[in-house]
């Protein structure tokens, strides 16, 4: 039933390769052998219902969670076997935008954005200031440098989080639900921003989401997960033409069968 991926890419140039990842939370198996590849300058969207393990996959790919078995190869290094010091080098080349933006509340936007630069580079203050202002400008937040995160709206926080994620010019960028909780216009703005980043910086971008409109707009390739398994891997056109029932159900937004038995309930009412 699994759709075999038809890659136009040579597997050896993959930026990230996930092989047979199995992850448990205590005794519960969350991921059951997930494999996928991310190529340079590509936006890969990971799609799937709530609770199917998307965030878990992301956290494992970031080295925040150790898998039970399987590999995560980033630049041909298996990050699940590296210790924190060895991971550092890879972490400096990846940026993450968390679901809740995860800005540091006690710091201003500019301090948030410049933090990685201040901690990991030997640049002087003036250069750091210029560099972080460029990134803040790129996400359209010029003028808000001295605001605290609590003074920003949800969409602005996401954009500030994005500015921080790209402050070190990463090669790989991870997004966990970038448009969740945003209005359609703001969400579309964020999608444009993601596309712009891919075009200007040639980043590999992994987006976890279940917002269909934004999926079709930004995705180069889509991986769909269900119950800890990859059930689809292909392009936007392929997913629209797919005949896998679970995939169809997802893109046509059909409810779970028998989720609420309205008919029976009404019948019972009529009889009573």
């Amino acid at each position: 039933m699994t759709h075999l991926p038809n890659h136009n890419h040579d597997p050896s140039i993959a930026t990230i390769e996930v092989k047979n990842l199995v992850v448990h939370y205590g005794p519960r198996k969350i991921l059951d052998g997930v494999s996928l590849r991310v190529f340079p300058a590509e936006i890969l969207v990971v799609l799937g219902g709530s609770g199917c393990g998307k965030s878990t996959l992301l956290r494992t790919m970031l080295g925040l969670l150790r898998p039970t078995s399987g590999q995560v190869l980033i630049k041909s290094k298996d990050i699940t076997r590296l210790n924190e010091d060895e991971l550092l080098e890879i972490r400096l080349r990846t940026g993450v935008l968390f679901q809740s933006a995860a800005l540091f509340n006690s710091m201003t936007i500019e301090e948030n954005v410049s933090l990685p630069l201040r901690e990991h580079t030997a640049l002087n203050d003036a250069t750091i200031k210029i560099m972080s202002r460029i990134k803040i400008g790129l996400v359209g937040l010029s003028g808000y440098e001295d605001f605290l995160p609590s003074q920003l709206s949800g969409g602005m926080k996401k954009r500030a989080g994005l500015a921080r994620a790209i402050s070190m010019d990463p090669e790989v960028l991870f997004f966990d639900e970038p448009s969740a909780g945003l209005d359609p216009i703001t969400a579309a703005g964020l999608d444009d921003l993601i596309l712009k980043l891919k075009k200007t910086f040639k980043m590999s971008i992994i987006v976890v989401t279940h917002e269909l409109p934004s999926v079709f707009k930004i995705a180069d390739r889509i991986v769909m997960m269900d119950k800890g398994l990859v059930i689809f891997d292909g392009t936007t056109e392929e997913i629209k033409a797919s005949s896998i029932p679970r995939v169809r159900q997802f893109i046509e937004r059909e409810p779970e069968g028998d989720a609420c038995q309205t008919g029976q309930f009404l019948e019972a009412l009529n009889c009573g």
């Binding site: 956290r59 970031l62 080295g63 925040l64 991971l87 550092l88 972490r91 400096l92 990846t94 993450v96 968390f98 679901q99 809740s100 995860a102 800005l103 540091f104 509340n105 933090l115 990685p116 901690e119 990991h120």
Partner: peptide, 15 residues
């Protein structure tokens, strides 16, 4: 900070 994923953010930033 842990609830708001800020600790995870620190770790992924290599801090």
């Amino acid at each position: 900070m842990k609830v708001a994923e800020e600790i995870d953010a620190l770790v992924t930033m290599g801090l």
